[in-house]
Amino acid sequence: MGMSVIISVATEQDTEQILKLQYLAFQGEAELYGDWSIEPLTQSLEDLREELADRHVLVARLGGEVVGSVRGWVDEDGVGRISRLAVHPRMQRHGLGGRLMSAVEERMLAERPVHAFRLFTGHRSLGNLRLYARQGYRETEVRPVNRLLSHVTLEKPVPVALATAV
């Protein structure tokens, strides 16, 4: 009998596993853009602990192992920001990324009114772009970062009934 993946709020005890997962999960992005200095690969344990204190940080656990994580926060304009979605390579393409995104969206909506969710990814990150489109996100901006990378901003409006239901 297999184990189920459980999504929950990250704790201080999860920080090292999250950082290791993040490093593993973002290797493909670094290779795709030829840049191993991207923030998910250089983030310190202390920076992650600070995020744990002031953002929604969720993890997906398979038994005792963290196999997915995502972060979210609501900015001063009422936009739910999503970042650092990471799924262990062996767990990808099984719907876990979508489950994590839905869970962090729900957490932000429970916190305060949100009128839209926003995130970004690289222009060549086709798997990410497909996932976000399936989750209801639409491209709103493409901004060149350097000659190899453009950031694609995607947004998903929140239905009015949900945006004000706190």
Rank of each mutant, 00 (worst) to 15 (best):
residue 41 L to P: 04
residue 70 V to Y: 07
residue 20 K to Q: 12
residue 117 F to E: 02
residue 161 A to F: 14
residue 135 Q to Y: 10
residue 54 D to F: 15
residue 113 P to N: 01
residue 9 V to L: 12
residue 126 L to P: 00
residue 111 E to T: 09
residue 103 A to P: 03
residue 102 S to W: 08
residue 32 L to V: 05
residue 2 G to K: 15
residue 17 Q to A: 15
residue 27 Q to C: 07
residue 3 M to L: 11
residue 116 A to G: 05
residue 95 G to W: 00
residue 65 E to N: 10
residue 128 N to T: 07
residue 97 G to A: 04
residue 16 E to Y: 15
residue 32 L to P: 01
residue 35 D to F: 02
residue 118 R to G: 05
residue 118 R to E: 05
residue 24 L to G: 13
residue 34 G to K: 02
residue 91 M to F: 13
residue 110 A to H: 02
residue 92 Q to E: 07
residue 126 L to M: 06
residue 137 Y to G: 03
residue 142 V to Q: 06
residue 53 A to Y: 14
residue 92 Q to I: 14
residue 61 R to F: 11
residue 119 L to S: 01
residue 138 R to V: 04
residue 15 T to H: 08
residue 2 G to I: 15
residue 41 L to H: 06
residue 65 E to T: 07
residue 114 V to D: 00
residue 55 R to S: 10
residue 26 F to K: 10
residue 73 W to T: 15
residue 18 I to N: 06
residue 19 L to Q: 15
residue 44 S to W: 02
residue 158 V to K: 09
residue 65 E to R: 14
residue 107 R to K: 13
residue 7 I to T: 11
residue 164 T to Q: 10
residue 51 E to Q: 14
residue 32 L to I: 06
residue 27 Q to T: 01
residue 12 E to Q: 11
residue 142 V to I: 10
residue 19 L to I: 14
residue 25 A to D: 05
residue 72 G to N: 06
residue 14 D to F: 04
residue 159 P to L: 02
residue 116 A to M: 06
residue 59 V to G: 09
residue 46 E to L: 11
residue 36 W to I: 14
residue 68 G to N: 04
residue 33 Y to G: 03
residue 131 L to D: 00
residue 103 A to M: 09
residue 93 R to Q: 10
residue 111 E to A: 15
residue 156 K to G: 02
residue 13 Q to Y: 14
residue 78 G to T: 09
residue 53 A to Q: 13
residue 10 A to G: 04
residue 115 H to P: 02
residue 165 A to P: 03
residue 60 A to H: 04
residue 117 F to G: 08
residue 55 R to H: 07
residue 18 I to K: 02
residue 112 R to E: 05
residue 1 M to C: 12
residue 60 A to E: 03
residue 105 E to F: 02
residue 70 V to M: 12
residue 113 P to C: 03
residue 144 P to C: 07
residue 113 P to K: 00
residue 3 M to C: 12
residue 120 F to G: 05
residue 102 S to L: 12
residue 108 M to N: 13
residue 153 T to Y: 10
residue 10 A to F: 01
residue 21 L to Q: 01
residue 117 F to K: 06
residue 69 S to W: 06
residue 28 G to L: 01
residue 118 R to C: 05
residue 11 T to K: 14
residue 25 A to G: 06
residue 16 E to K: 15
residue 86 A to P: 01
residue 54 D to L: 12
residue 78 G to R: 11
residue 125 S to T: 13
residue 26 F to H: 08
residue 96 L to Y: 05
residue 118 R to N: 03
residue 127 G to F: 01
residue 94 H to Q: 12
residue 32 L to C: 03
residue 92 Q to Y: 11
residue 47 D to L: 09
residue 113 P to Y: 01
residue 50 E to L: 14
residue 59 V to E: 09
residue 94 H to R: 13
residue 43 Q to T: 09
residue 121 T to P: 03
residue 162 L to P: 02
residue 23 Y to R: 15
residue 8 S to T: 12
residue 47 D to N: 12
residue 27 Q to E: 10
residue 53 A to H: 06
residue 110 A to F: 06
residue 6 I to C: 10
residue 132 Y to A: 04
residue 88 H to Q: 11
residue 140 T to Q: 11
residue 16 E to R: 13
residue 123 H to P: 04
residue 57 V to Q: 04
residue 27 Q to G: 01
residue 141 E to N: 14
residue 45 L to C: 07
residue 84 R to L: 13
residue 36 W to V: 13
residue 116 A to P: 01
residue 11 T to V: 11
residue 161 A to W: 13
residue 144 P to N: 09
residue 7 I to S: 12
